[in-house]
Design a protein around this nucleic acid. Structure first.
Lengths: 357, 357
DNA sequence: ATGAAAGCGCTAACAC
DNA sequence: GTGTTAGCGCTTTCAT
């Protein structure tokens, strides 16, 4: 391994000068710069980040800890984070906590012990993480789900989106809606349930029909099965995320129930394949890329100190995308090729500000 | 920041002993262990990984550099890698190169300068990466795509899978197949095209009908459009990955062409939603999790030295999953609920060994 | 503008 | 079995 002292010797100068040249800090004599650069080049010198980090007591690495790498919401978030990070000279590495609290903790520990420049986290629960990072004074921005502790936070309006989705179902003439949501420990699950209930209450519907399941495909399957096996089964489903939606869809399919004709269906998250299902699925679209980008922007500002004071909270608007699965009126004849094209897109929610701080 | 010397003082011993206790290496007096542990606990001591890494000249971090985080093939690979890494005491961070060579280079550089314990990479092209890592003697395992330089490598049998898929189309009675594959620079794209051609040649079909497009949804759209606009359009499509498949599906949809009845369709990669499309899509399934797990296993063995000598190559079998989109016989009446259930699964390929070394 | 020197926190020889 | 000590490669005062 060729080190800085080798370059110094080769260029007939001192380690200090080489360091200065490499970090293009001070005004060094142009002639020396030339000599150092050429020497470094000739020797194939590569700075050792480990030594630099230890000396500087900081890195330029961000950890983005997400709860499920197979959820397209989070992969879109990741792209938003990466774009902003790159523009600001940070590298992002992704950590998949996999909805597992101990893995999450492990990655938080990694961030702390490796002195990450910043962390963006979608917390499973537990505020211990926050304290751990705070004690190492590593800036943290939460996404998707908040914690009781006040921390910078970016999310989208789950409750408003859920309410709009449910109201849409009711407007379409579905009369016995039900809700498949995530576990009580997940904030987004509870908010989406609450939005669903908001709509029911506003419409004077007393029977709630709610099931809580893990945010996985199996949860969607068993949740749908439970609801459909009841004495008075629902005629429409509001499903709180895309993994649950896949399970629910599978269950409907296996019972020969066709969304749009036999049962109404609307779900959270505009996954890329929602247009290709039979029939296309109506969704509440979250601005996932923006969630990531805004979170990254906040992190940059915390790191460089331009954002100070108490934590900010940003809530982004969702968008209702109406396709065939939620429309009651759709006649069976109108299936197939035309179904994809007739999808209405863009009914913006009336609820909530674009972003409040 | 509380450091090892603080713990030493607090427990009335030396830094060396504290270090030994923390790394549970030597046989230290149980009484001392107790005192050290309790002192560390009391002071809230956290080891500084930066210092440790610098001293040891190694880390326990793996970089997994993938070409597209939104491709479910790679997210499944990631889970395979993570499971094996965790069992062996390594942390995995994911880097999304986004099919961008300069980003990929950047992450390789990160791995080298941070002295990663190992790297798993799906290379976009360029063998410079390999040399860079080799010069820092960081073990590397390639996945999905190989390079001209010999390096440990795990993939699945693209060519065999493509051939089997195409043969299946022909057996179903489709007569004018076409192929939408990726760019010529992508090895998997070329192998799948080759497998497609193998089947055509074996069947004595002379007209190849092949288009090369970027591995993105737009590529699928324009690729399909090009083929369908020809004087003699194809009556069946073999599509080389899932992003392309989405675009192709969109194009078919917009022209009112229904897979299975109007046109045959089979694609690479068993994405979770392939069962939910209209109609369900036949696919060549890659053992993505296994690709990741096997690659990780090789990396472990390279790191601990139990695997030595020249690079190994592992080629895993693919699986043909036949659903409705490729079956010509499917009568229009058999749509809807039953279509998902009647899917045949499991026709194993006759080609290739399970894994050769 | 440049160099000398200290030291970031830890581990691994080496001595006892 | 435990302590002493040197030093990983770099940056950054502090002199000059």
């Amino acid at each position: 391994m060729v080190k800085i002292s080798d370059v110094a010797r080769e260029s007939g100068t001192s380690p200090a000068t080489v360091s200065r040249v490499l970090n293009k800090n001070d005004r060094v004599d142009p002639e020396l710069v030339r000599r150092v650069v050429s020497a470094a080049d000739r020797l194939g010198y590569r700075p050792n980040a480990l030594a630099r980090n230890l000396r500087r007591q900081r890195t330029s690495l961000w950890l983005l800890i997400i709860s499920d790498i197979e959820d397209s919401f989070f992969t879109s978030v990741a792209r938003g984070v990466e774009d902003v990070a790159q523009r600001n000279g940070f590298s992002v590495v992704l950590c998949n906590a996999d909805e597992d609290e101990s893995k999450e903790m492990q990655y938080v520990e990694l961030a702390a012990s490796e002195l990450a420049a910043g962390v963006i986290l979608s917390p499973h629960s537990a505020r211990t993480h926050v304290e751990r990072l705070a004690s190492s004074s590593i800036p943290l921005v939460l996404i998707d789900r908040s914690l009781s502790t006040p921390v910078d936070f970016v999310t989208s309006d789950s409750r408003g989106g859920a309410r709009a989705a449910t109201e849409h179902l009711l407007q379409q003439g579905w009369r016995r809606p039900a809700c498949i949501t995530g576990p009580r420990s997940a904030e987004t699950a509870e908010l989406r349930r609450a939005g669903y209930e908001d709509a029911l209450e506003a419409a004077g519907i007393r029977t709630k029909r709610i099931v809580h399941e893990p945010f996985h495909i199996d949860g969607g399957r068993t949740g749908a099965a439970q609801l459909l096996d009841r004495g008075k089964p629902p005629d429409a489903l509001f499903v709180a995320n895309s993994a649950l939606a896949m399970g629910a869809l599978e269950e409907l399919w296996s019972r020969g129930l066709r969304p749009g004709s036999d049962i109404g269906l609307i779900t959270f998250d505009d996954v890329p394949w929602a247009r290709f299902t039979d029939p296309p699925i109506s969704v509440v679209a979250q601005p996932a890329y923006q969630v990531g980008a805004r979170a990254a922007q906040m992190l940059v500002e915390r790191i460089n100190g331009s954002l100070q004071g108490k934590p900010r909270k940003i809530v982004l608007e969702t968008e209702l995308v109406v396709r065939a699965s939620s429309r009651r009126a759709l006649p069976p004849a109108d299936r197939g090729a035309s179904a994809g094209k007739t999808a209405i897109k863009g009914a913006h929610l009336a609820v909530a500000d674009t972003s409040r701080t």
